Amino acid sequence: SSQSQGISSSSTSTMPNSSQSSHSSSGTLSSLETVSTQELYSIPEDQEPEDQEPEEPTPAPWARLWALQDGFANLECVNDNYWFGRDKSCEYCFDEPLLKRTDKYRTYSKKHFRIFREVGPKNSYIAYIEDHSGNGTFVNTELVGKGKRRPLNNNSEIALSLSRNKVFVFFDLTVDDQSVYPKALRDEYIMSKTLGSGACGEVKLAFERKTCKKVAIKIISKRKFAIGSAREADPALNVETEIEILKKLNHPCIIKIKNFFDAEDYYIVLELMEGGELFDKVVGNKRLKEATCKLYFYQMLLAVQYLHENGIIHRDLKPENVLLSSQEEDCLIKITDFGHSKILGETSLMRTLCGTPTYLAPEVLVSVGTAGYNRAVDCWSLGVILFICLSGYPPFSEHRTQVSLKDQITSGKYNFIPEVWAEVSEKALDLVKKLLVVDPKARFTTEEALRHPWLQDEDMKRKFQDLLSEENESTALPQVLAQPSTSRKRPREGEAEGAETTKRPAVCAAVL
């Protein structure tokens, strides 16, 4: 046999249950609850290399294929790409003598399909299967379609040439079993990697079954959420508030809700932002270029202005709740996480202390139980975000031990490091100062900020419009641009040419 590394010779191994799959997660993409704000000051410096380099560890398999027929071997997927077919160049070659004697062998292509993985959001991997055969590759009886790919989820059954000719079961060793999710959700989405997690739940990458488009699904544990919100009269209202707010909003710089499922837990389906959180971008770069800050901040102002015009105060604006559309420097941003939002009543007064301390406005800290506050709290938070983006460190921090965090904020005395700000323009610093004003009545509004000289930049605004146009074009394009080929190089076993392929839609398939 010419099988590559990772293939075992026996096809009769006992199949494990899916609970053996491991679970991976990374930083929070968007969480309903406010958790302790991640610290920006503690960015690790590059460490000196050791005298002796450690040995390379043996790579762990990321997936496993269990053979369902004699003549096929099990495969431990270690590499990122595997070709399957009769050709000797394939990493998994159909060359077992037992297999060659079967009637089905002649229906398999020289290069029938490939399984591979690509880097997705949060640097996690996504597994795909890609059909290159004349007679078809099927996943859970659905045709992939020649020249098309679809994501592979845990426990997928792979069939060759005929939908009933099941050859492998695919085990993704990095994700959960699909069966743990409600059927209504599974009918519409293929669940994938964990993108982030918080005290009350997690955010998962998923794929729409009909279109193969990526989405983010925010899962909120009702049990954990009820415990964490025990002081509230009705904890469920917080989730329902977020859903109702998101459904009503329609702005290019605000995250869109696509679906909602109320089962044992809450499942909020949101558009996916491939670039992750602004927080991670700031930490990764230490600070952002001023031109990049301007492009992002302009969009934040437009989003918050839209919220305020619609009578909504976000109340928890922070870099973790600003998501980026891509890994590119120039990209769209979207505001997310409306769990603490407040729809303005007639009095415009709110007395609930919520939000993240580092970003809270002075009037929030001094008015607990005594007075109210209004939309100006969001403008203060925007000032803190702009400060961080321009400088790479927070204006107020618990680690300045000589003054408490509350006193720093209520006095408006931010930590100004001259040598850092020497590289920032006077106009940018002036806008920061106009937003970090203790008196909410004297603080800049979103309208005033948008009129500030720093943002009178036609090149930046043109760039934003171009990015918007690109997004609109990409969302308007159909996901499947061509029909699967019906040509046949070899006959199917026991049926006429093209008899099955043309009847089945290529579900969740995307043209390369």
Rank of each mutant, 00 (worst) to 15 (best):
I243K: 09
I243G: 13
E244H: 15
L246R: 03
L246M: 14
K247L: 10
K248H: 09
K248T: 12
N250Q: 09
H251A: 07
P252R: 05
I254A: 06
I254H: 05
I255A: 09
I255K: 02
K256H: 05
K256G: 08
K256W: 09
K258A: 12
E264Y: 03
Y267N: 13
E271Y: 10
E271F: 09
M273G: 06
G275P: 14
G276R: 08
G276N: 14
E277G: 04
E277H: 01
F279W: 10
K281Q: 10
K281V: 08
V282E: 03
V283C: 04
V283L: 13
N285I: 10
K286Q: 13
E290G: 08
E290D: 12
E290T: 09
T292A: 11
C293G: 10
C293V: 06
K294R: 08
K294S: 14
K294T: 10
Y298D: 01
Q299A: 08
Q299K: 05
M300G: 01
M300V: 13
A303T: 13
A303E: 00
A303P: 03
A303C: 14
V304G: 09
Q305D: 05
Y306G: 05
E309F: 08
E309K: 09
N310T: 10
G311L: 09
I312Y: 01
H314T: 02
P319Q: 05
N321F: 00
V322A: 13
V322H: 01
V322Y: 00
L323I: 02
L323Y: 06
E328D: 07
D330G: 09
C331R: 11
C331Y: 12
I333Q: 00
I335G: 01
T336S: 07
D337W: 00
D337P: 06
F338L: 02
F338H: 00
F338I: 01
H340Q: 13
S341E: 00
L344I: 11
G345V: 07
T347C: 15
L349H: 13
T352R: 02
L353T: 15
C354M: 01
P357G: 03
Y359G: 02
L360A: 14
A361N: 00
A361E: 03
P362Y: 00
E363S: 02
L365H: 11
L365N: 04
V366K: 04
V366L: 10
S367D: 09
V368G: 10
Y373V: 04
N374Y: 08
N374W: 04
R375V: 11
V377G: 03
D378T: 00
D378K: 00
D378Y: 01
W380L: 02
W380Q: 02
S381V: 01
L382K: 03
L382Q: 01
G383E: 01
I385V: 07
F387S: 02
I388A: 07
P394S: 13
E398A: 02
R400N: 15
S404F: 09
D407T: 13
I409S: 03
K413L: 12
K413R: 11
N415H: 07
F416G: 00
F416N: 06
P418H: 08
E423W: 15
K427N: 10
L429W: 06
D430E: 07
D430S: 02
K433I: 02
L436E: 00
V437I: 07
D439Y: 08
D439I: 05
K441T: 14
E447G: 10
E448C: 15
E448G: 01
A449K: 03
L450M: 02
L455P: 11
D459E: 11
M460N: 10
K461R: 14
F464P: 01
L467Y: 04
L467P: 06
L467E: 00
L468P: 05
L468M: 07
E473L: 04
S474E: 11
S474Q: 07
S474L: 01
T475K: 05
L481N: 08
P484S: 09
T486S: 08
R488A: 04
P491V: 04
P491L: 12
R492H: 09
E493V: 07
E493G: 08
E495H: 13
A496D: 08
E497R: 15
E497L: 08
E497V: 12
T501A: 12
T502L: 12
K503V: 02
R504Q: 00
A509V: 10
L512I: 04
L512M: 13
